[in-house]
Amino acid sequence: MANDFITSFAAEDHGTYAERFHRDLIEAVTRRKGRTVSAAMCRGGQGDTNRPLVADAKVFVALCSQVYYDDQGCGADWAVFEHRLHLVPPQFRPSDPPARVLVRWQSAKPPSGVPLAPVLSGEITDSYASKGIYGIICQEGLSQAYWDAVDEIAAAVCAGQECSPPEVSVGELPALTLPFPRGAGDARACRPSPAAQPAVPRPRKPADDAERPRVFISYAHEEDGDVHKGKVAALAERLREEGIDVSLDTSAHRKGPQHWARWMHKHYKEADFVLVMVSPAYKRRAEHEEKPGKGDGVAYEADLILSERMAVRRWYERILLGSFPEHGKAYVPFFLDGVTLYTLYRDLPDLIDFIKSKSS
């Protein structure tokens, strides 16, 4: 059975973000169609795996970026769908085929002869046109601009399904010219790539799966009207959406009164990873330079971290540092200085991939 659409993306792209977008696009198309939607992901370079999917999918969704245009596998997938488009008689063939939906993933100039991913209409036009979907997620998270873009792209996918090109048999495909990467040459044919490619990140696990990686978030309540606290809570929810079990004090508060020292010690010890979200108040309290009686929870957690840092040689593989853009390296406690600092949301795919890889 042919897929309603496939999502083509580069092998070097962050699979976590592509997977999230693909999943959200399925949900958006499902809402519009009012029925279950079948879809698949096609990572560049998968060759034998991708070709049958591209050969009969109703719509081809391409996550356009510089790395996409530099990926020979993506060029091969594009060539197969282009071949199908040209099976439509010229008099019935639109110059901009609706069944090929081009997504501005990151800003990039396409190779000669390859169309530019269109901008979207409405209030998100400037943001989407300049940043692309990947840029919106990195800089704004899953903002309204992101959801508006997903909905517009879902509408394009639904329209494209009404104009799907003829399906083809993989065995009947001729040698096809690659439209990219740049400099591929007219004589280069579309062949499956034998090289090993990075694996697509593991799918999300259900909430009751005991094998999910566990993360304890250590952070400070800044005196900013709960802005920082809200951003940490949103980050926790984002990690949960990726199949990561997160321990956070705000979640525990909703369950009723807690013995907080016991709660912190328990969740700290049971976590696979401790994510320290640095900020001005966190640095003061972790270094015991805060006013007496204020921020004792951070001081307690910092003491646990410092003890582990002194006792465990590769402590930095469990104690991870995160920061929102407005804070940064200046607010890393002195005893945690010198290790990787993940700036969110820009580095969120790297953080998620590391957590998942170490917990597999």
Rank of each mutant, 00 (worst) to 15 (best):
K229A: 14
P203N: 05
I137K: 09
Y316A: 15
D48V: 15
P325N: 11
A299S: 15
L320A: 06
V278F: 10
A220T: 10
H267L: 10
F9Y: 13
L321R: 15
F21E: 00
V67C: 06
D245H: 07
D77P: 05
A261K: 13
A299E: 11
P213W: 04
D126M: 15
S359Q: 04
A261H: 08
S360G: 06
G45I: 14
Q72S: 09
K231S: 05
D24V: 10
H327A: 13
C158N: 03
E27L: 09
V215E: 03
D77I: 08
F180W: 02
F180E: 05
T7R: 04
L321D: 04
V339G: 04
A57L: 09
R313V: 06
K231Q: 10
Q46D: 15
K255H: 14
V274S: 03
T125R: 15
A155L: 04
L173S: 03
I217P: 01
Y342L: 06
P174R: 02
A210K: 08
A220Q: 14
Q139N: 12
Q106M: 05
P325A: 12
G328I: 11
A62P: 01
F354Q: 01
L348P: 00
P325T: 09
D350L: 02
A302W: 05
D151F: 03
A252D: 12
D350Y: 01
K291P: 03
V80S: 03
V80T: 10
R254Q: 13
E123K: 11
M277P: 03
V101Q: 04
D353S: 01
V232C: 11
P115S: 13
E223F: 13
Q197F: 03
L321T: 07
S357V: 04
T16G: 00
L321E: 06
A189V: 12
A234L: 08
K231Y: 03
E326V: 15
P179H: 02
A299T: 13
P333D: 07
P192Y: 08
A189L: 11
M310I: 06
L275Q: 07
D226A: 14
K266H: 11
A159G: 02
I217N: 07
D350C: 01
L25E: 06
E167Q: 14
R32H: 09
Q66K: 12
E172I: 01
C64Y: 00
F273T: 07
I133K: 01
I136Q: 01
L248P: 05
E123R: 12
K131C: 02
S247H: 09
E326T: 15
W263N: 10
P201R: 05
A145E: 06
G47R: 15
M277V: 14
P292V: 11
F335H: 13
F92N: 13
D353V: 00
T36Q: 14
E19F: 02
E27T: 13
D186G: 12
M264G: 02
C138I: 00
R43M: 15
V119Q: 10
C158R: 04
A187T: 10
G75D: 02
V61A: 00
D209S: 11
A271Q: 03
G225R: 12
H265S: 13
M310W: 05
L248T: 11
G160C: 05
